[in-house]
Design a protein around this nucleic acid. Structure first.
Lengths: 147, 147
DNA sequence: CTATCTGCAAACCGTTTGCAGCGTT
DNA sequence: AACGCTGCAAACGGTTTGCAGATAG
């Protein structure tokens, strides 16, 4: 992801906040800047720590409240993990799923899952009416693989 | 699942506890009986409430400590959900995945996922070395569908 | 008889809420 | 100027820990 797309994603999120009647403030700018460019799912506390580098007055409570709004606007989503299920990441664009690095936590989306056949099979065998699915892959990212 | 298999699964778990050097006690028996036969993922508090019907002296702390041991022995596993990620369910037998009913919480395992092709594709496109995957389907179980 | 297990109470820790002052619009 | 937003401190609720007595083996 280039520097420009990061910046514009960030501006896009801020515009989105404003358009929804929320105010654009310094602490929110710091959090948005962080979340729009992060390639790792982050816990609230990590966002707080990182965000304070940018805006030292930032409070943890504001992190929680801002994440709540960003999630509501569909800009950010929660990521569930073995080692924690309160991490946040830039939301998927359309129908995408996650690959996560178990070593460094690097997260990447991919699209093109082909589980339609599987869903049909499960529908047949269990009688469930499937409406949603969750798919996550875990492994080593290119950087961590070479070590 | 017939009554006999439930009973034997329960005995199997108790035997497993004993074989691992853990003691078989009344509170543990109550929890094992519950977990070995439940078709829903349950939170510690729900296990506590249910378990007290069987063994009124049961303490919540014992529920936590017993779940820890059952998980360690691979008899029980944590289930992550949108509405909570601290629920426990009988562990999968081999490579199975979950279908969950979003209305009543009924959980069922299925096998035969065919995502090998997908994993290859993602390996190619992202450079990740995929080692594990998480797949969960959500929908309505047969009973809830007809309402 | 010994070591594990139990339940209680207290500690813990991440998250949420109440509030008075600040800053965006 | 109005009202949303902020950070602080306190409350909250689920989980963990310390401990003395109970109990399985």
């Amino acid at each position: 992801m280039s520097e420009e797309t990061q910046t514009s994603l960030c501006d896009q999120w801020l515009a989105n906040l404003a358009a929804s009647g929320y105010r654009v403030t310094a602490p929110r700018r710091a959090i948005v800047e962080l979340m729009a460019s992060s390639t790792h799912a982050l816990e609230p506390l990590a966002i707080y720590d990182q965000g304070r580098k940018d805006y030292p007055g930032l409070g943890l409570v504001t992190v929680y409240r801002t994440l709540e709004k960003l999630e509501e606007l569909g800009l950010v989503q929660r990521v569930h993990h073995h080692q924690g299920c309160h991490m946040y990441l830039r939301a998927a664009h359309g129908h995408e799923h996650l690959v996560l690095c178990t070593r460094c936590g690097h997260a990447e989306y991919f699209s093109g899952d082909d589980i339609g056949g599987l869903i049909n099979k499960v529908t047949q065998s269990t009688g469930f009416e499937i409406r949603e699915h969750w798919l996550q892959l875990f492994g080593l990212c290119p950087a961590c693989k070479n070590q």
